[in-house]
Nucleic acid binder design. Structure first.
Length: 672
RNA sequence: GCCGGUGUGGCGCAGAUGGAAGCGCAGGCGACUUGUAAUCGUCAGGUCGUGGGUUCGAGUCCCACCACCGGCUCCA
C-alpha cells in the first residue's frame, strides 16, 4: 500500500496526500474557507461524505454549502434532525421518508394514537431541533445487509417497506424510495446520530449536526404514504434550510414576492373578479374591469383564429346523457362531472365537462367531403367540472371554466402538417401576450384509463413528437399523462419569476371519430374516418388570466389594461381640457378616463399608481397654454412635463392596440 | 375527498381568563382648488360565515355545515 495517494481536483491540478487522508482533511489543506463551507464531496462521480478516505487516482470535487448540491445535503441532513426531534417529542412515532426538495425538505410521520401535528407544534419541534444541533451529533454512516436492515428497523413498518422494496431489487423501484435506502440492491446504508437516532439513508450528510442551524419549519400537512390516496395518510412537516440566515431571509423575501403577485390578491385589489360564496366553491364572477381585460383577450384570440382558418360555433352547456355515453365521458370521466339532473320523464341531463362531443355533432350535421378538411371549429366554451373540494384554487382551478376550445377534423395525411402549424400558432399567440419562455411536455398513454389500440396511440404520439421536435424547444416526457382518448402535447410557460404553468394543450384523438362513427367522402368516393385534434391555447381563459396577472404582477401591458390612461386636472378649471385630451385619446382607440380635482393631486396620483395604470397624465395651466400633457409612465419615477398632446395620442394609438401578431402568415397555414 | 389552519362592517385588522362590538382605509356629505405616492371635518355602515348546543349570559366554549388558506391526491 503506497504511503501517499494522489488525487485530481476539478481545476485539473493534482495533490498528493498521506494515505488515510479524508476529504475533510484535504479541504482543510486547500484552505480554511473551503473547509468551513464544505458539506460533502463527489468522489469519482459518486456523492460521498467528507469523512470518506481518499484513494489513489481519485477525482475529487468538494461540495460547498452555497451551491444547489450543497443545500440539498444541508436540507437532507436537517430533515434527519427533524425526524430525531419528532421522535423525542412523540415517543413511538413511526417515520417514513424525509427528502430534500426545492428550497427545503420535509419528513413524513405516523404519530402514535393517530395524533396530528398542529401549527403550534412547529415551534416546539424547532426548539427540539436546535437542541439536537447544539449536541453536535456526528452523522455516522453504516452499511448493512437487507436482513440487518430489517432487524434494525424491526418496529418501523415504513422503513421495512422501503428495505423490502430494495430487496426485491426490481428495476421498477420508486427512485425516491431507493434513494432513501441507499440505492444498491442487496444492501442498505444508514446514518446514525449518537445513540438515539438512526435512519435509513443513502447520504451524503454533513459531518455533524453542528453544521446545521439555518432553517425554519414552515407548515404541517397530511400526505399519503407513497403518494397514494388509498394508503394511510401520514403527517408531514415542511421546512426550509439554507447555508446562512441571510439566505433564509432571501428565501422568505422571494415568498413575499410571490405573495405580492398572487392573482387572488390582485383580483380583489384591482377589482377584477371575485368568488361570491353564494355561488359555491370554484365559481368566479368577473367585474367590469376584469371583464374588459377578458374581452380584450378573447377578441384578440378570435381575430387570430379567424385569420388562421377557424370557424366559430356555439353549443349549449347541458345535454342528455346519451352524448356522454357515446363519447365515453360517463365511463371514463364521470367523477369529474357534476351529477345529472333528472328531467322529462326520466331523461338525465349533464352539465358538459368538455366541448368536443358537441363539435362532433356539428361535424356530423351533414355529410362531409375531403374538400372541407381540415375543418376547424372554435368556441369559447364554458364547461363544468366537479373538482374535489380541496383542489380549488383561485382562477387556476375552478369548477366553471371557459376553454378557448377548438377541434380540428382532418385526414390522417394532414395530421402532421396540421400539428406543426398548430404548434407554431400556439407559440405565436402566447408570445403576443408576453409569454416567451416555454418548454413542451409530451404526455403518453395512461396505464389505467385509456381507450384504443396500442398502434393508434403509438401513431398519434409519434405525430405529436415530430411536431414538437420541429419547434426546437426543450421537450420533456410525461409518461402516462395523456387523456383517456389520446396523447397530448402541452406548452409549459415560465413566468417572470421562473414558475412554470401548463397552458396550451394539443391532443390527437382517433377514438372519438370511431365512437361517433364520423366519416367523410374521399377523393376516391369512398368513406373514410377523419382524425380529430383537440386543442386549447389559453388552456382556460380563467387560468390564462390568472397567469398573466401573476406574470405582470398586476401591471398588465397597455394593450391589455382595462384603463390605459387617466387624466388628472390640477384644478377644477382644467377639467375641460382634461376632457378634451380624453376624447382625443378615445378617438384614437385608447381607453382613457379623466377625473375631477376634488382631492389634492398627490392623493390622486397615489391612487392611480396603486391601480397600476400604464399612464397617468397631469394637466394644468402650462399644458392648457401649450397644448401639452404631463406624462407619468408606469415604472418611471420622474414625470415628463410638457409632452405634446398630439404626439402622446399618436404614441398611444399604437401602444394601446393589440399586437399585430408577429409571424402572421407563418402561423395560419391552410386557411380556406 | 383527506390532513392542518382561518372566518369580526366593502378591504386590512383589534377585541387575556365568557359579562354593554372597536380602529385604519374605502364609502356618503361639507369645506379646501391643489403640478406629482395619503387635505381637513363630519356622517353612515356589523343578526361577529351559517345552523344547532352549553350557560343567568357566547364574537369568545362544544357540534355540524359552508367558504377560504397551506399541503396530499387529482388537474385546464
Amino acid at each position: 500500500m503506497p504511503s501517499e495517494v494522489t488525487v485530481f481536483l476539478p481545476d485539473g491540478s493534482t495533490r498528493s496526500v498521506p494515505a488515510g487522508t479524508t476529504i475533510a482533511d484535504l479541504a482543510a489543506q486547500i484552505g480554511r474557507r473551503l473547509a468551513a463551507a464544505a458539506v460533502a464531496a463527489e468522489l469519482d462521480g459518486v456523492l460521498v461524505d467528507l469523512s470518506e478516505v481518499l484513494v489513489d487516482d481519485a477525482r475529487v470535487r468538494i461540495i460547498t454549502s452555497d451551491t444547489d448540491e450543497g443545500r440539498d445535503v444541508l436540507r437532507h441532513s436537517t430533515a434527519h434532525v427533524l425526524a430525531q426531534a419528532v421522535l423525542r417529542l412523540w415517543p413511538g412515532a413511526r417515520y417514513a421518508i424525509g427528502p430534500a426538495i426545492a428550497d427545503g425538505f420535509y419528513y413524513d410521520f405516523d404519530l402514535p394514537h393517530g395524533a396530528r401535528f398542529s401549527d403550534d407544534d412547529l415551534a416546539r419541534i424547532e426548539s427540539e431541533m436546535h437542541a439536537v444541533i447544539d449536541e453536535s451529533q456526528p452523522f455516522v454512516r453504516e452499511e448493512h445487509t437487507i436482513a440487518e436492515g430489517l432487524e434494525i428497523f424491526a418496529d418501523q413498518p415504513y422503513k421495512r417497506e422501503i428495505i423490502e422494496g430494495v430487496a426485491e431489487a426490481a428495476v421498477r423501484i420508486d427512485d425516491e424510495l431507493a434513494a432513501e435506502a441507499g440505492g444498491n440492491p442487496g444492501a442498505v446504508s444508514t446514518y446514525r446520530n449518537g445513540p438515539g437516532f438512526i435512519d435509513l439513508c443513502r447520504g451524503p450528510h454533513v459531518a455533524s449536526t453542528a453544521r446545521l442551524g439555518h432553517f425554519k419549519l414552515t407548515r404541517v400537512a397530511g400526505a399519503y404514504w407513497r403518494g397514494d390516496e388509498r394508503r394511510p395518510q401520514l403527517q408531514r412537516v415542511y421546512g426550509t434550510a439554507w447555508e446562512s440566515d441571510k439566505a433564509v431571509e432571501a428565501y422568505l423575501h422571494r415568498l413575499a414576492e410571490a405573495e405580492r403577485r398572487d392573482h387572488r390578491r390582485l383580483g380583489a385589489e384591482l377589482d377584477l373578479f371575485s368568488f361570491p360564496p353564494e355561488l359555491g366553491s370554484g365559481l368566479a364572477v368577473f367585474h367590469p374591469k376584469g371583464g374588459l381585460v377578458r374581452k380584450v383577450m378573447e377578441d384578440y384570440s378570435r381575430s387570430r383564429h379567424e385569420q388562421s382558418g377557424y370557424q366559430f360555433v356555439n353549443t349549449p352547456h347541458i345535454t342528455k346523457s346519451g352524448l356522454f355515453e357515446t363519447s365515453g365521458h360517463l365511463q371514463w370521466f364521470a367523477e369529474g362531472m357534476f351529477p345529472p339532473m333528472e328531467l322529462d320523464e326520466g331523461h338525465q341531463y349533464y352539465l358538459k365537462p368538455m366541448n368536443c362531443p358537441f363539435h362532433i355533432l356539428i361535424y356530423k350535421s351533414r355529410q362531409r367531403s375531403y374538400r372541407e378538411l381540415p375543418l376547424r371549429l372554435f368556441e369559447f366554451g364554458t364547461v363544468y367540472r366537479y373538482e374535489k373540494s380541496g383542489v380549488i384554487h383561485g382562477l387556476t382551478r375552478v369548477r366553471g371554466v371557459t376553454m378557448d376550445d377548438a377541434h380540428i377534423f382532418c385526414t390522417r395525411d394532414q395530421m402532421a402538417t396540421e400539428l406543426q402549424s398548430l404548434l407554431g400558432f400556439v407559440l405565436d399567440l402566447l408570445r403576443d401576450f408576453g409569454l416567451d419562455d416555454f418548454y413542451l411536455e409530451l404526455s403518453t398513454m395512461p396505464e389505467e384509463k385509456a381507450v384504443g389500440t396500442a398502434s393508434e396511440w403509438e401513431e398519434a404520439t409519434e405525430a405529436l413528437r415530430q411536431a414538437a421536435l420541429a419547434m426546437e424547444l426543450e421537450l420533456v416526457l410525461d409518461p402516462g399523462g395523456g387523456a383517456f382518448y389520446g396523447p397530448k402535447i402541452s406548452v409549459q410557460v415560465r413566468d417572470a419569476i421562473g414558475r412554470t404553468w401548463q397552458m396550451s394543450t394539443i391532443q390527437v384523438d382517433f377514438q372519438m371519430p370511431q365512437r361517433f362513427e364520423m366519416e367523410y367522402v374521399g377523393q376516391d368516393n369512398a368513406r373514410h374516418q377523419p382524425i380529430m385534434i383537440h386543442r386549447a391555447l389559453f388552456g382556460s381563459v380563467e387560468r390564462f388570466f390568472a397567469v398573466l396577472l401573476e406574470h405582470y404582477a398586476g401591471a398588465l401591458p397597455t394593450w391589455l389594461a382595462a384603463v390605459q390612461v387617466r387624466i388628472l386636472p390640477v384644478r377644477d378649471d382644467h377639467t375641460f381640457y382634461a376632457q378634451r385630451v380624453r376624447s382625443l385619446l378615445a378617438a384614437a382607440g385608447v381607453r382613457a378616463e379623466a377625473d375631477d380635482a376634488g382631492e389634492p393631486l398627490g392623493a390622486r396620483i397615489r391612487r392611480a399608481k396603486l391601480e397600476k395604470l400604464p399612464y397617468v397624465l397631469v394637466v394644468g395651466d402650462s399644458d392648457l397654454a401649450a397644448g401639452t400633457v404631463g406624462v407619468n409612465a408606469r415604472g418611471s419615477d420622474e414625470p415628463e412635463r410638457g409632452v405634446s398632446t398630439d404626439l402622446f395620442v399618436e404614441k398611444l394609438r399604437l401602444e394601446a392596440a393589440p399586437p399585430v401578431g408577429r409571424g402572421f402568415g407563418t402561423a395560419g397555414t391552410g386557411a380556406p
